Computed example of a mutant assay.
Amino acid sequence: MTRPALTDVRPEILTRSPRGGRPPVTPSARGRRARGLVTVTLFLLPALVLFGLLVLAPIAVAMYTSVFKWNGLGGLPSDFIGLDNFTRAFGDEVFVGDLRRGLVLIVLSILIQLPLSLAIAMLLNQKMRGRAFYRLLFFAPYVLSEVITGVLFTMILSPDTGLANQILGAVGLDSLRSSWLAEPSTVMMSLFLVMTWKYFGFHMILYLAGRQGIPRELGEAAAIDGAGSWDQFRYVTLPLLGPTIRISVFLSVIGAIQLFDLVWVLTSGGPIHSSETMAVTMFQFGFKRTQIGYASAISVVMFGISLVFALAYQRFVLRRDTEGAITSMRGKR
Protein backbone atom coordinates (compact mmCIF):
# COMPACT_ATOMS: atom_id res chain seq x y z
CA MET A 1 0.00 0.00 0.00
CA THR A 2 1.36 3.38 -0.98
CA ARG A 3 1.44 6.19 1.54
CA PRO A 4 -0.88 9.13 0.60
CA ALA A 5 0.81 12.31 -0.44
CA LEU A 6 0.71 15.25 1.97
CA THR A 7 -1.12 17.33 -0.61
CA ASP A 8 -4.03 14.90 -0.56
CA VAL A 9 -4.78 15.65 3.09
CA ARG A 10 -7.49 18.26 3.70
CA PRO A 11 -6.28 21.53 5.31
CA GLU A 12 -8.73 21.30 8.20
CA ILE A 13 -7.18 17.98 9.23
CA LEU A 14 -3.77 19.56 9.43
CA THR A 15 -5.01 22.44 11.62
CA ARG A 16 -7.19 20.31 13.91
CA SER A 17 -5.87 19.87 17.44
CA PRO A 18 -4.99 16.35 18.62
CA ARG A 19 -7.97 16.21 21.00
CA GLY A 20 -10.50 17.39 18.45
CA GLY A 21 -10.91 20.85 19.96
CA ARG A 22 -10.22 24.25 18.45
CA PRO A 23 -7.19 24.65 16.21
CA PRO A 24 -4.07 25.88 18.01
CA VAL A 25 -3.56 29.62 18.18
CA THR A 26 -0.60 30.64 16.11
CA PRO A 27 1.77 33.46 17.15
CA SER A 28 0.45 35.65 14.33
CA ALA A 29 -3.13 35.20 15.60
CA ARG A 30 -2.02 36.13 19.11
CA GLY A 31 -0.38 39.25 17.73
CA ARG A 32 -3.55 40.28 15.91
CA ARG A 33 -5.61 39.79 19.04
CA ALA A 34 -3.18 41.83 21.10
CA ARG A 35 -3.20 44.65 18.55
CA GLY A 36 -6.99 44.55 18.43
CA LEU A 37 -7.18 44.74 22.24
CA VAL A 38 -4.82 47.71 22.29
CA THR A 39 -6.87 49.47 19.60
CA VAL A 40 -10.14 48.91 21.46
CA THR A 41 -8.58 50.11 24.72
CA LEU A 42 -7.26 53.30 23.10
CA PHE A 43 -10.65 54.09 21.61
CA LEU A 44 -12.46 53.41 24.89
CA LEU A 45 -9.97 55.19 27.13
CA PRO A 46 -11.29 58.79 26.63
CA ALA A 47 -14.86 57.69 27.29
CA LEU A 48 -13.80 55.68 30.35
CA VAL A 49 -11.84 58.63 31.73
CA LEU A 50 -14.80 60.99 31.30
CA PHE A 51 -17.19 58.41 32.80
CA GLY A 52 -14.90 57.99 35.77
CA LEU A 53 -14.47 61.72 36.36
CA LEU A 54 -18.08 62.79 35.75
CA VAL A 55 -20.00 59.77 37.09
CA LEU A 56 -18.00 57.41 39.28
CA ALA A 57 -15.98 60.08 41.10
CA PRO A 58 -19.03 62.18 42.15
CA ILE A 59 -20.80 59.02 43.36
CA ALA A 60 -17.76 58.06 45.43
CA VAL A 61 -17.43 61.59 46.88
CA ALA A 62 -21.14 61.69 47.78
CA MET A 63 -20.90 58.31 49.53
CA TYR A 64 -17.83 59.49 51.42
CA THR A 65 -19.24 62.82 52.59
CA SER A 66 -22.61 61.27 53.50
CA VAL A 67 -21.12 59.75 56.65
CA PHE A 68 -19.74 63.08 57.91
CA LYS A 69 -21.23 66.20 59.41
CA TRP A 70 -19.77 68.77 57.05
CA ASN A 71 -20.66 72.21 55.78
CA GLY A 72 -18.43 72.05 52.71
CA LEU A 73 -15.92 74.55 54.10
CA GLY A 74 -12.64 74.26 55.93
CA GLY A 75 -10.98 71.47 54.03
CA LEU A 76 -11.90 67.80 54.02
CA PRO A 77 -14.66 66.53 56.34
CA SER A 78 -13.47 65.21 59.69
CA ASP A 79 -16.56 64.95 61.91
CA PHE A 80 -17.49 61.31 61.26
CA ILE A 81 -21.05 60.46 62.31
CA GLY A 82 -21.63 57.15 60.52
CA LEU A 83 -25.19 56.55 59.33
CA ASP A 84 -26.73 59.40 61.35
CA ASN A 85 -27.46 61.42 58.19
CA PHE A 86 -29.45 58.52 56.75
CA THR A 87 -31.30 58.00 60.03
CA ARG A 88 -32.10 61.68 60.08
CA ALA A 89 -33.40 61.57 56.50
CA PHE A 90 -35.82 58.69 57.06
CA GLY A 91 -36.97 60.28 60.30
CA ASP A 92 -37.65 63.64 58.64
CA GLU A 93 -41.28 64.23 57.71
CA VAL A 94 -40.26 66.38 54.74
CA PHE A 95 -38.06 63.68 53.23
CA VAL A 96 -40.66 60.96 53.84
CA GLY A 97 -43.15 63.29 52.18
CA ASP A 98 -40.75 63.60 49.25
CA LEU A 99 -40.87 59.82 48.82
CA ARG A 100 -44.64 59.85 48.97
CA ARG A 101 -44.97 62.72 46.49
CA GLY A 102 -42.53 61.04 44.12
CA LEU A 103 -44.63 57.88 44.24
CA VAL A 104 -47.75 59.91 43.46
CA LEU A 105 -46.08 61.46 40.41
CA ILE A 106 -44.94 58.04 39.21
CA VAL A 107 -48.43 56.56 39.51
CA LEU A 108 -50.08 59.53 37.80
CA SER A 109 -47.51 59.42 34.99
CA ILE A 110 -48.10 55.73 34.34
CA LEU A 111 -51.89 55.92 34.58
CA ILE A 112 -52.53 59.25 32.81
CA GLN A 113 -49.53 60.71 31.01
CA LEU A 114 -48.36 57.59 29.17
CA PRO A 115 -51.84 56.41 28.05
CA LEU A 116 -52.52 59.94 26.78
CA SER A 117 -49.26 59.90 24.82
CA LEU A 118 -50.12 56.49 23.38
CA ALA A 119 -53.60 57.60 22.33
CA ILE A 120 -52.28 60.71 20.57
CA ALA A 121 -49.55 58.66 18.88
CA MET A 122 -52.13 56.21 17.53
CA LEU A 123 -54.27 59.11 16.33
CA LEU A 124 -51.37 60.82 14.57
CA ASN A 125 -50.39 57.57 12.90
CA GLN A 126 -53.59 57.72 10.85
CA LYS A 127 -53.70 59.46 7.50
CA MET A 128 -55.03 62.98 7.99
CA ARG A 129 -54.47 66.45 6.66
CA GLY A 130 -51.78 68.36 8.55
CA ARG A 131 -50.44 65.27 10.33
CA ALA A 132 -46.84 66.48 10.25
CA PHE A 133 -47.88 69.84 11.71
CA TYR A 134 -49.73 68.21 14.60
CA ARG A 135 -46.77 65.98 15.34
CA LEU A 136 -44.51 69.01 15.46
CA LEU A 137 -47.02 70.92 17.59
CA PHE A 138 -47.30 68.17 20.21
CA PHE A 139 -43.56 67.55 20.32
CA ALA A 140 -42.65 71.25 20.61
CA PRO A 141 -43.10 71.50 24.44
CA TYR A 142 -40.42 68.87 24.96
CA VAL A 143 -37.92 71.01 23.03
CA LEU A 144 -38.40 73.91 25.44
CA SER A 145 -36.12 73.95 28.45
CA GLU A 146 -37.55 73.23 31.89
CA VAL A 147 -36.77 76.79 33.00
CA ILE A 148 -38.76 78.33 30.14
CA THR A 149 -41.61 75.92 30.80
CA GLY A 150 -41.63 76.78 34.48
CA VAL A 151 -41.64 80.54 33.87
CA LEU A 152 -44.41 80.17 31.27
CA PHE A 153 -46.71 78.23 33.58
CA THR A 154 -45.90 80.50 36.50
CA MET A 155 -47.58 83.25 34.48
CA ILE A 156 -50.41 81.02 33.24
CA LEU A 157 -51.26 79.79 36.75
CA SER A 158 -50.88 83.15 38.44
CA PRO A 159 -53.83 83.72 40.81
CA ASP A 160 -54.48 87.31 39.71
CA THR A 161 -53.59 87.76 36.06
CA GLY A 162 -53.03 84.16 35.02
CA LEU A 163 -54.60 82.84 31.85
CA ALA A 164 -56.11 79.82 33.62
CA ASN A 165 -58.21 81.88 36.02
CA GLN A 166 -59.19 84.35 33.30
CA ILE A 167 -60.53 81.53 31.12
CA LEU A 168 -62.48 80.06 34.03
CA GLY A 169 -63.97 83.46 34.79
CA ALA A 170 -64.85 84.04 31.12
CA VAL A 171 -66.86 80.80 30.91
CA GLY A 172 -68.66 81.39 34.18
CA LEU A 173 -66.66 79.00 36.37
CA ASP A 174 -65.46 81.53 38.91
CA SER A 175 -65.89 78.97 41.69
CA LEU A 176 -63.03 76.96 40.21
CA ARG A 177 -60.59 79.85 40.25
CA SER A 178 -57.65 79.08 42.51
CA SER A 179 -54.13 80.01 43.52
CA TRP A 180 -52.90 76.91 41.73
CA LEU A 181 -49.27 76.96 42.81
CA ALA A 182 -49.80 78.58 46.20
CA GLU A 183 -52.25 76.14 47.81
CA PRO A 184 -51.23 72.72 49.14
CA SER A 185 -54.45 71.17 47.86
CA THR A 186 -53.82 72.09 44.22
CA VAL A 187 -50.07 72.44 43.81
CA MET A 188 -49.31 68.75 43.11
CA MET A 189 -51.99 68.44 40.44
CA SER A 190 -50.79 71.70 38.90
CA LEU A 191 -47.24 70.36 38.89
CA PHE A 192 -48.37 67.13 37.26
CA LEU A 193 -50.28 69.14 34.62
CA VAL A 194 -47.10 71.00 33.73
CA MET A 195 -45.11 67.74 33.66
CA THR A 196 -47.65 66.17 31.32
CA TRP A 197 -47.62 69.15 28.97
CA LYS A 198 -43.81 69.14 28.96
CA TYR A 199 -43.04 65.45 28.51
CA PHE A 200 -45.97 63.75 26.81
CA GLY A 201 -44.62 64.73 23.38
CA PHE A 202 -41.43 62.77 24.01
CA HIS A 203 -43.34 59.60 24.84
CA MET A 204 -45.67 60.23 21.92
CA ILE A 205 -42.69 60.20 19.54
CA LEU A 206 -41.46 56.95 21.09
CA TYR A 207 -44.83 55.28 20.58
CA LEU A 208 -45.15 56.69 17.09
CA ALA A 209 -41.76 55.31 16.11
CA GLY A 210 -42.64 51.94 17.60
CA ARG A 211 -45.99 51.89 15.81
CA GLN A 212 -44.41 52.63 12.45
CA GLY A 213 -42.06 49.71 12.98
CA ILE A 214 -44.98 47.26 13.06
CA PRO A 215 -45.62 45.72 9.62
CA ARG A 216 -48.87 46.92 8.08
CA GLU A 217 -49.55 43.40 6.80
CA LEU A 218 -50.30 42.19 10.32
CA GLY A 219 -53.17 44.63 10.71
CA GLU A 220 -54.46 43.80 7.26
CA ALA A 221 -54.39 40.09 8.06
CA ALA A 222 -56.29 40.71 11.29
CA ALA A 223 -58.87 42.78 9.39
CA ILE A 224 -59.35 39.94 6.90
CA ASP A 225 -60.00 37.62 9.84
CA GLY A 226 -62.77 39.96 11.00
CA ALA A 227 -60.95 41.99 13.68
CA GLY A 228 -62.19 45.52 14.15
CA SER A 229 -60.07 48.57 14.91
CA TRP A 230 -60.15 47.99 18.66
CA ASP A 231 -59.31 44.29 18.32
CA GLN A 232 -56.41 45.12 15.98
CA PHE A 233 -55.05 47.57 18.53
CA ARG A 234 -55.57 45.22 21.49
CA TYR A 235 -54.30 41.97 20.00
CA VAL A 236 -51.80 43.16 17.36
CA THR A 237 -50.53 46.70 17.95
CA LEU A 238 -50.38 46.77 21.76
CA PRO A 239 -48.41 43.52 22.22
CA LEU A 240 -45.91 44.52 19.53
CA LEU A 241 -45.52 47.92 21.20
CA GLY A 242 -44.58 46.15 24.44
CA PRO A 243 -40.83 46.89 24.28
CA THR A 244 -41.45 50.57 23.53
CA ILE A 245 -44.00 50.88 26.34
CA ARG A 246 -41.64 49.26 28.82
CA ILE A 247 -38.84 51.65 27.92
CA SER A 248 -41.25 54.58 28.19
CA VAL A 249 -42.35 53.50 31.66
CA PHE A 250 -38.73 53.15 32.74
CA LEU A 251 -37.81 56.65 31.57
CA SER A 252 -40.93 58.11 33.17
CA VAL A 253 -40.20 56.55 36.57
CA ILE A 254 -36.54 57.59 36.61
CA GLY A 255 -37.51 61.11 35.54
CA ALA A 256 -40.07 61.39 38.36
CA ILE A 257 -37.52 60.23 40.94
CA GLN A 258 -34.97 62.84 39.84
CA LEU A 259 -37.40 65.71 39.15
CA PHE A 260 -35.91 69.04 40.15
CA ASP A 261 -35.81 71.94 37.69
CA LEU A 262 -39.53 72.23 36.97
CA VAL A 263 -40.37 72.14 40.67
CA TRP A 264 -37.68 74.64 41.55
CA VAL A 265 -38.81 77.19 38.98
CA LEU A 266 -42.52 76.74 39.65
CA THR A 267 -42.71 76.50 43.45
CA SER A 268 -39.23 75.96 44.96
CA GLY A 269 -40.90 73.11 46.84
CA GLY A 270 -43.61 75.22 48.47
CA PRO A 271 -46.02 76.00 49.84
CA ILE A 272 -44.86 74.49 53.17
CA HIS A 273 -43.00 71.64 51.39
CA SER A 274 -46.18 70.40 49.70
CA SER A 275 -44.53 70.11 46.25
CA GLU A 276 -41.00 69.31 47.36
CA THR A 277 -39.13 66.38 45.82
CA MET A 278 -35.98 64.57 46.94
CA ALA A 279 -33.84 66.56 44.53
CA VAL A 280 -35.28 69.86 45.80
CA THR A 281 -34.68 68.84 49.42
CA MET A 282 -31.12 67.88 48.57
CA PHE A 283 -30.55 71.26 46.92
CA GLN A 284 -32.09 73.13 49.84
CA PHE A 285 -29.84 71.51 52.42
CA GLY A 286 -26.74 71.38 50.26
CA PHE A 287 -26.68 74.87 48.78
CA LYS A 288 -29.05 76.92 50.94
CA ARG A 289 -28.22 75.59 54.40
CA THR A 290 -24.69 74.32 53.62
CA GLN A 291 -25.33 70.92 55.21
CA ILE A 292 -23.31 69.02 52.63
CA GLY A 293 -23.15 65.77 54.59
CA TYR A 294 -26.91 65.52 54.95
CA ALA A 295 -27.49 66.55 51.33
CA SER A 296 -25.00 63.90 50.21
CA ALA A 297 -26.93 61.29 52.18
CA ILE A 298 -30.12 62.31 50.36
CA SER A 299 -28.32 62.06 47.03
CA VAL A 300 -27.07 58.56 47.94
CA VAL A 301 -30.64 57.52 48.77
CA MET A 302 -31.82 58.88 45.41
CA PHE A 303 -29.04 57.00 43.65
CA GLY A 304 -29.84 53.81 45.55
CA ILE A 305 -33.55 53.98 44.72
CA SER A 306 -32.82 54.62 41.05
CA LEU A 307 -30.21 51.86 40.89
CA VAL A 308 -32.40 49.25 42.61
CA PHE A 309 -35.34 50.12 40.40
CA ALA A 310 -33.21 50.02 37.24
CA LEU A 311 -31.69 46.63 38.10
CA ALA A 312 -35.01 45.11 39.16
CA TYR A 313 -36.79 46.51 36.11
CA GLN A 314 -34.15 45.16 33.77
CA ARG A 315 -34.17 41.79 35.53
CA PHE A 316 -37.93 41.22 35.67
CA VAL A 317 -39.44 43.49 32.99
CA LEU A 318 -36.83 44.16 30.30
CA ARG A 319 -35.27 40.71 30.45
CA ARG A 320 -37.13 39.36 27.43
CA ASP A 321 -36.32 42.44 25.34
CA THR A 322 -32.61 42.46 26.20
CA GLU A 323 -32.27 38.73 25.64
CA GLY A 324 -33.85 39.10 22.20
CA ALA A 325 -31.45 41.91 21.32
CA ILE A 326 -28.41 39.92 22.49
CA THR A 327 -29.56 36.86 20.55
CA SER A 328 -30.00 38.94 17.39
CA MET A 329 -26.55 40.46 17.76
CA ARG A 330 -24.96 37.03 18.22
CA GLY A 331 -26.75 35.75 15.14
CA LYS A 332 -25.21 38.51 13.02
CA ARG A 333 -21.63 37.75 14.01
Rank of each mutant, 00 (worst) to 15 (best):
G213H: 06
E276G: 14
R22V: 01
L206E: 09
T41Y: 10
A223F: 02
L240V: 04
G75V: 07
R35H: 05
A47Q: 11
H273C: 06
M1F: 02
I167M: 01
S328W: 12
T7D: 11
T196M: 12
R100G: 01
I13T: 11
L54Y: 14
I148P: 00
W197E: 10
L44C: 08
F153A: 04
A209K: 15
F68E: 11
V249R: 02
F86Y: 15
R330W: 10
T277W: 09
M63G: 12
E12G: 01
L103F: 08
T41W: 13
L163C: 01
P215I: 02
V104S: 13
L181T: 03
F283S: 08
M155V: 12
G293V: 05
Q166M: 06
G228H: 00
E183K: 09
T244Q: 02
R289E: 00
S78D: 12
L251E: 05
A312S: 07
V253K: 13
I81R: 05
L54K: 12
Y313L: 09
W264H: 13
A221C: 05
V61I: 05
I59Q: 13
F250W: 06
V61S: 14
A223W: 02
L311G: 03
Q166I: 07
G31S: 15
R319A: 15
F250I: 06
T2R: 03
M282G: 13
D8T: 10
L266D: 08
L168E: 02
G150V: 03
L240A: 11
L37E: 07
A279G: 09
G269A: 09
P11M: 07
K288E: 13
R330P: 04
